[in-house]
Nucleic acid binder design. Structure first.
Lengths: 220, 220
DNA sequence: GTCTATACATCGATAGAC
DNA sequence: GTCTATCGATGTATAGAC
């Protein structure tokens, strides 16, 4: 069951790890070839340049995001549920594809200056529009605040969610689902405690408004 | 009034812009020399290596953060006020030193692997402790929620705040102070509207709990 | 499809004249 | 303190044998 594309996939996979660990610019084609187990000249039978390897890493990754986001949106009914679904989908992608996620977060700024990566830029805009549509629908229907720019909310939650790939270790006790619940709860309900929030003893009962997962135990 | 240190500062400043725009690894000493207006060999009269230039850029920057954070903490009384002060201080630093901020956010992961930059790593830990102390004090005194990890809140707000250097343009209509208010409001009070939050028509009146700046007009 | 061998450019850094 | 000139290492990429 070994297909001809397997060699290509292996190169992409090895390169992604190196690009993520040491940056694209600092990774040499010889290092990629070493990781694959061939000599550097052999890579050029599969790719016409180092940049083509970078593009292969990112284009597959962005295609995955687009597919997962389409699913995520349809899984929620309310804007708050859809925000939670987008957060969870993003964290699952980061768990499944940590190296492309790291490359994208660390280097999109440099890469998008090269016309070589125009397709990458275009996919990124589609992802942004998906988020903005959900957020703006929530502002319109009264779910979300009208006194803050939707774009600011988008950029803050986007960066907080994706950068979690730098510190979150999915294998541990802090599961990806739990993190998604916590991120959504902070961004939608805030980190102020109930008493501080309302300045009265009125019960809020809505601190985790979209998730069905319960945290095992409150600490403190 | 031209001091001998001016040349060094100029090199650091030019290098910082190039490092931020094209990454440290992709920037050559010849490019730095071009920007300064000398030939590459002349740089080595002021610095013993390219890495020494990188270190000069970051060490001055991190010293600035430490000084500003000390001030920020003492400017607030409650944990919420101190969080707002740290957010504002961070955004002001990003406004004043956008290039070092970009370098730090984009490349800290790669740079901290080199023992050359151990001092940078140490300063980063002090900054993290400053945030955590404020947040944990808020959890203890009941200002902040006990049902979410303080560390998660720290990491989310840290990444959201610092990454704003990638999109926020301080010269425009959206001032740094306004952004600081919005960030603090979202992270402390959440993005859900009042009616959604409480599921009753109870007036919250505490959506922007720490800032004295009022947004000019609500939109929509 | 991988190897050997190498072309060619560019890198960081140095030596010594001025 | 800057220049000229250049070293040695290393980078991407190629050509042709196997």
């Amino acid at each position: 069951m070994i297909e001809p594309q397997d060699r290509r996939e292996l190169i992409v996979s090895c390169a992604a790890e190196l690009f993520a660990r040491r940056s694209v610019a600092a990774t040499t084609v010889r290092e990629i070839a070493d990781a694959v187990g061939v000599l550097s000249g052999s890579l050029y039978h599969h790719f016409e340049s180092k940049d083509a390897i970078v593009e292969a890493v990112l284009s597959g990754y962005l295609e995955l995001i687009r597919a997962q986001y389409r699913q995520a949106i349809s899984s929620g009914k309310t804007p708050a549920e859809r925000v939670h679904a987008l957060v969870l989908a993003s964290l699952k992608i980061a768990e499944d594809q940590p190296y492309p996620t790291l490359i994208y977060q660390n280097e999109i700024h440099y890469l998008s200056e090269s016309p070589q990566f125009a397709a990458v830029q275009k996919a990124a805009e589609e992802v942004q529009n998906t988020w903005l549509k959900v957020i703006e629908a929530g502002v319109r229907d009264g779910s979300f605040r009208k006194d803050l720019p939707a774009r600011t909310f988008y950029r803050l939650i986007r960066d907080a969610v994706w950068l979690s790939v730098r510190w979150h270790r999915p294998g541990g006790k802090y599961s990806t689902e739990q993190l998604a619940d916590d991120v959504t709860s902070i961004f939608l309900s805030g980190y102020l405690s109930a008493s501080t929030e309302a300045r009265t003893a009125k019960a809020p009962a809505s601190k985790a408004p979209v998730s069905k997962t319960a945290r095992a135990a409150a600490k403190g």
